[in-house]
């Protein structure tokens, strides 16, 4: 029967993508667009391909709203806001990837340990993770900043460490489900080494989606922490732009009615974090709801 044959053909990648609900599709494509734009902005700023020199002051064109010469307007000393926002991606891009990497690697180690051997590792690892969770991230980071005056890489390394519990918990709950599946049991019973079962069936075949989800959530978090710290004056310092310190510096003009200087970088934060939140939630629903059912 034609219908039967059709059903057995594995859907193409595009076909599977089209089967997504519209909301999830929109959220994921918007988030992916944000990620691509961020990468482009970062690479351009590294290569020096900025529309205007971000540190060039133009006292004849201060506090301007967007126009042809300055696509996103200028700040209180006439510096081009678009160039500064693009340059501002440097404050969190690589450090954010570092934070994601740290939380993923250690989250995977702890998650596998607790997931596969709960009777042996659940208590020690649980205590360690609870210890990390019992302090607000910002307080811990301010403590480290005051003690060591580290640069932004070390600060986001600490952010990555504080994200380990979330990553570990995500993987642990996944493994708790997987461990009861008969193919895992069969593989172990047939004598497949445990490390291969972990590496292939758990981390590669079922953990790939989690990496994407955790990376998405982690980047949003990294941007949030970096901008908050730079706003508070502990992260990236003027004249080096960060989206956080740009909002903070526009404060006095904001209250006088020149809303744009603070609002442009704030909108950059809004659209970026919104993209990562939407994509993370959509992927979580898409990849996890299906597997745990």
């Amino acid at each position: 029967m034609a219908h039967y044959a059709e059903l057995t053909i594995a859907p193409t990648t595009w076909g599977r993508f089209r089967a997504w609900p519209v909301g999830q599709l929109f959220a994921t494509s918007y988030g992916a667009t944000v990620a691509v734009l961020l990468t482009v902005a970062y690479v351009c700023s590294r290569l020096g391909w900025l529309p205007v020199d971000p540190n060039a002051m133009d006292l004849a064109a201060m506090n301007q709203t967007p126009d042809a010469a300055h696509l996103l307007g200028t700040d209180f000393v006439g510096r081009d806001l678009l160039s500064r926002i693009m340059l501002g991606t440097q404050a969190f891009f690589l450090p954010g990837l570092l934070a994601i990497g740290v939380s993923l690697v250690f989250g995977a180690i702890f998650g596998v340990l607790v997931g596969f051997w709960p009777e042996r590792f659940a208590t020690p690892v649980g205590v360690l993770l609870q210890l990390l969770e019992s302090l607000p991230k910002l307080v811990l980071i301010l403590l480290v900043i005051a003690l060591f005056r580290p640069d932004i890489y070390i600060i986001l390394l600490v952010v990555g460490i504080t994200n380990i519990p979330a990553a570990a918990e995500l993987l642990r709950s996944k493994i708790a489900v997987l461990k009861r599946k008969s193919y895992i049991e069969a593989a172990l019973a047939l004598g497949v080494p445990t490390w291969r079962v972990i590496g292939k069936h758990v981390l590669w075949l079922h953990g790939r989606g989690l990496v994407l989800i955790q990376a998405t959530i982690g980047m949003g978090e990294a941007i949030l922490i970096e901008t908050s710290l730079s706003y508070l004056g502990f992260g990236v310092q003027e004249p080096v732009p960060s989206w956080g310190n740009m909002v903070g510096l526009g404060k006095d003009y904001f209250f006088q009615g020149d809303l744009w200087i603070s609002t442009a970088p704030a909108l950059a934060i809004l659209f970026t974090i919104l993209g990562f939140h939407l994509m993370g939630d959509a992927l979580l629903e898409r990849l996890e709801a299906r597997n745990s059912a």
Binding site: T227, I269, H277
Partner: peptide, 22 residues
């Protein structure tokens, strides 16, 4: 909820102060 969660809280504070005082 989505939009306000993605907004930086310091800018939200400025906006609220601006609206209610200025």
């Amino acid at each position: 909820a989505y939009v306000i969660s993605a907004l930086p809280v310091f800018w939200l504070g400025y906006l609220v102060i601006y609206i209610f005082t200025t």
